[in-house]
Amino acid sequence: MTAQKNDKKNDRNSRTTGKPTLNDVARRAGVSPITASRALRGVSTVAEELSEKVRQAASELGYVANPAARALASKQSHNIVVLVPSLANQLFIETLEAIHAVMHPRGLEVLIGNYHYSRDEEENLLRNYLAYQPRGLLLTGFDRTESARRMIEASGVPSVYMMDLDPGAGLHCVGFSQIRAGEAAARHLLKSGRKRLAYIGAQLDQRTLLRGEGYRRALQQAGCYDPALEVLTPRPSSVGLGGELFRQLLASQPQVEGIFFGNDDLAHGALLEAMRHGIRIPEQVAVLGFNDLPSSEFMVPRLSSIRTPRKAIGTHAAERLLDLINDKPVSEPVMDLGFELMVRESS
């Protein structure tokens, strides 16, 4: 079909539906339809002056792009699907911001799916999003249903897994070892001579369980693991829950000398509860968190925590996905960004 026929077809569609078309926007802005499309998608190669003209024309006409039609016409979408287990957790927000910063200048739209730590909900999101033929998938961790795994494999859509590592799976993943992070937490508390050490974890997603496993291994190797000092609950992680579990643990195990919390918000709750009841941290009980959220260094006392590379994971996972989309060679599928132990006043 020639460009002239395309113009006539779009004009006819505009008159029939009453909705402005991309061609209408292009004519008003004085650019080609291709340039108008690129400008509206934020492609960085379009001059800012032209982009502004296109955006102004689209605004004046009330034009709204139809991504489904665009994908059908080009036989590929401009969407990247990112699936995360929570939008209430600060660590995923930082990762999503980093992904958007990489994708948007390249004209790719980021579609975010929140599956609330439910494997079944993630499977449904995958089924719905794959129907739109996304250019790529960014997935959190490796814990999903077998049906979801089959869908990802059968789709042929380039995929990168974030937050955790699985060197033996042959999958592209960007993150750090949750088990080694748990081991590092235990070694830090053991180094101070403390022996009666507890682990408190909530939500019980795979990453929380893995860091708990690493902590347990290190304590077992040191000969001081006590299963009575392991507190796990499927309840959502929160400051309030952290205070509650801290209080309950000390009531049942008053000789506990140190606690590793699976998330910083739980540790924040423990510090507040300790302050409320006059429990001296770290003299009576050392407290160590995980993720090193921005508020942790301002707690009283300042919270020691395992700092995780949330922003870097988003950036490198997005860049790796772009390489896969563009068929660029990738020498090593596993990218280990490590973690950092931030020692402060609480331990």
Rank of each mutant, 00 (worst) to 15 (best):
residue 187 R to H: 02
residue 233 T to V: 07
residue 135 R to G: 02
residue 265 D to V: 12
residue 99 I to R: 15
residue 84 V to F: 07
residue 244 E to V: 03
residue 296 S to R: 06
residue 241 L to P: 00
residue 330 V to F: 15
residue 289 G to P: 01
residue 82 V to T: 14
residue 283 E to M: 11
residue 295 S to Y: 11
residue 210 L to E: 13
residue 148 A to P: 08
residue 206 Q to E: 09
residue 78 H to M: 15
residue 43 V to C: 14
residue 88 A to C: 03
residue 131 A to Y: 02
residue 42 G to N: 15
residue 114 N to G: 09
residue 271 L to R: 01
residue 116 H to P: 10
residue 196 R to P: 04
residue 132 Y to H: 05
residue 156 G to T: 05
residue 228 A to L: 04
residue 319 E to A: 08
residue 319 E to T: 12
residue 221 Q to F: 03
residue 263 N to T: 10
residue 105 P to R: 04
residue 200 I to D: 00
residue 344 R to E: 09
residue 147 S to G: 03
residue 107 G to P: 03
residue 202 A to S: 02
residue 96 L to F: 11
residue 273 E to W: 00
residue 37 S to V: 15
residue 224 C to R: 02
residue 61 L to H: 08
residue 341 L to M: 15
residue 41 R to E: 08
residue 232 L to F: 12
residue 254 P to E: 11
residue 235 R to S: 11
residue 45 T to G: 07
residue 344 R to K: 09
residue 279 I to L: 10
residue 47 A to H: 09
residue 245 L to A: 11
residue 145 T to W: 03
residue 223 G to F: 10
residue 187 R to P: 01
residue 62 G to H: 07
residue 309 P to S: 07
residue 304 S to N: 02
residue 311 K to N: 06
residue 35 T to V: 13
residue 214 G to H: 04
residue 170 G to P: 06
residue 326 N to W: 15
residue 85 P to N: 03
residue 207 R to Q: 07
residue 106 R to Q: 15
residue 247 R to A: 14
residue 151 M to L: 11
residue 105 P to Y: 08
residue 223 G to V: 08
residue 37 S to Q: 12
residue 286 A to M: 00
residue 148 A to R: 05
residue 153 E to S: 03
residue 124 N to S: 13
residue 146 E to W: 01
residue 231 V to W: 03
residue 311 K to A: 15
residue 60 E to H: 04
residue 94 E to F: 11
residue 26 A to L: 05
residue 92 F to S: 10
residue 4 Q to H: 14
residue 88 A to P: 01
residue 99 I to V: 15
residue 15 R to E: 12
residue 66 N to Y: 09
residue 74 S to C: 07
residue 85 P to M: 15
residue 153 E to P: 01
residue 47 A to C: 05
residue 303 L to V: 02
residue 128 N to K: 10
residue 7 D to R: 08
residue 16 T to P: 01
residue 80 I to R: 14
residue 289 G to M: 00
residue 346 S to V: 00
residue 230 E to N: 10
residue 117 Y to T: 08
residue 318 A to E: 03
residue 72 L to N: 04
residue 83 L to D: 08
residue 144 R to K: 14
residue 97 E to C: 04
residue 218 A to N: 05
residue 288 L to Q: 13
residue 188 H to A: 08
residue 163 M to W: 13
residue 247 R to V: 07
residue 295 S to H: 08
residue 277 H to G: 10
residue 288 L to R: 10
residue 153 E to M: 12
residue 88 A to E: 03
residue 308 T to N: 11
residue 151 M to E: 07
residue 237 S to I: 00
residue 121 E to S: 12
residue 89 N to W: 02
residue 106 R to T: 12
residue 108 L to I: 02
residue 137 L to W: 00
residue 233 T to K: 04
residue 273 E to L: 06
residue 258 G to K: 01
residue 333 P to Q: 14
residue 185 A to I: 00
residue 103 M to T: 05
residue 313 I to Y: 06
residue 324 L to V: 13
residue 243 G to W: 02
residue 228 A to N: 07
residue 217 R to S: 12
residue 297 E to G: 13
residue 323 D to I: 10
residue 279 I to Q: 08
residue 222 A to D: 00
residue 301 P to Y: 11
